[in-house]
């Protein structure tokens, strides 16, 4: 944890996209949602989880999404991460209309351009630190040699260079979340999505994670964080408040 302030991502690694079947425009407006709705049908009643979302996020932004429980924050974040498709309206990511993409193409976009960080870390228990970090690279067709080298580099970057052979269960929560961040960075994505990344951590570990995210933002990554915590939201330049699936208001902060 003492290493949290080390130079994050000191070496610029260029990842070659193994698969070019999906183009990706990294223009300024990386993400555009227009009248986006998401309904669930858990029973007879239709559940409108997201309603008429109008949202544009530009490249390199740092955004926090806030709102009460059940307001649709996670649903929105999953939508941004192409884990889901809108019920209506349009969602354009990197120039692609997500509704029109095939399942394999969504997988490719997730793997190559998006890095997920979850509240509950979501590491695979049977794999060690290096192997966990390697997963996204495996699906992009990296050679075993290249991905192992990059995974080691990333583990060092998040301050876990001495823990590469450990299983997740042998690590503290903060360390596990740092592995998750390293994994999210494996394919050098443009966008990092974090759903309450500090929700399961003590304040010190949480602070370490936020510091890493801040560094990543400084390096030009687009960071979108879901949180309940005003202090965490304070790290972001823009805060989106959700209520009942609608964008209630947005705050912009100039620093």
């Amino acid at each position: 944890m003492a290493k949290a302030d080390q130079e994050v991502g000191g070496g610029k690694t260029v990842i070659q996209q193994a698969n070019k079947t999906v183009g990706f425009d990294s223009d300024a407006q990386i993400l555009v949602m227009e009248q986006l709705c998401k309904n669930y049908y858990p029973g007879a009643v239709e559940l409108k989880v997201l309603r008429d979302i109008e949202l544009t996020i530009t490249r390199g932004e740092s955004v926090a999404i806030m709102g009460p429980s059940g307001s649709g924050k996670s649903t929105l974040l999953n939508m941004i991460g192409c884990l889901d498709r809108p019920t209506s309206g349009s969602y354009t990511l990197g120039g692609n209309n997500v509704s029109m993409l095939e399942d394999d193409q969504l997988s490719l976009i997730r793997g190559a351009h998006i890095g997920f960080v979850f509240q509950s870390f979501n590491l695979i228990d049977q794999l060690n630190v290096i192997e966990n970090i390697e997963i996204p690279m495996f699906y992009q067709g990296f050679s075993e040699h290249d991905s192992a080298a990059r995974a080691t580099e990333l583990a060092q970057m998040v301050g876990l260079g001495d823990r590469v052979g450990h299983r997740p269960s042998e690590l503290s929560g903060g360390q596990q979340q740092r592995v998750a961040i390293a994994r999210a960075l494996a394919n050098d994505p443009l966008i990092i999505l974090a759903d309450e990344p500090t929700g399961n951590l003590d304040s010190q570990s949480g602070a370490d994670i936020l510091e890493i995210l801040d560094r990543l933002h400084e390096q030009g990554k687009t960071i979108i964080v879901v949180t309940h915590d005003d202090n965490i939201a304070a790290h972001a330049r823009r805060v989106i408040h959700l209520l009942d699936g609608r964008v209630k208001r947005q705050e912009y902060k100039d620093k």
Partner: peptide, 16 residues
């Protein structure tokens, strides 16, 4: 199940 979800989020296609 959860592992499958994780892998899918990290870029695994159905065929993977």
């Amino acid at each position: 199940t959860r592992e499958i979800g994780i892998r899918r989020a990290l870029g695994a296609r159905k065929r993977d």
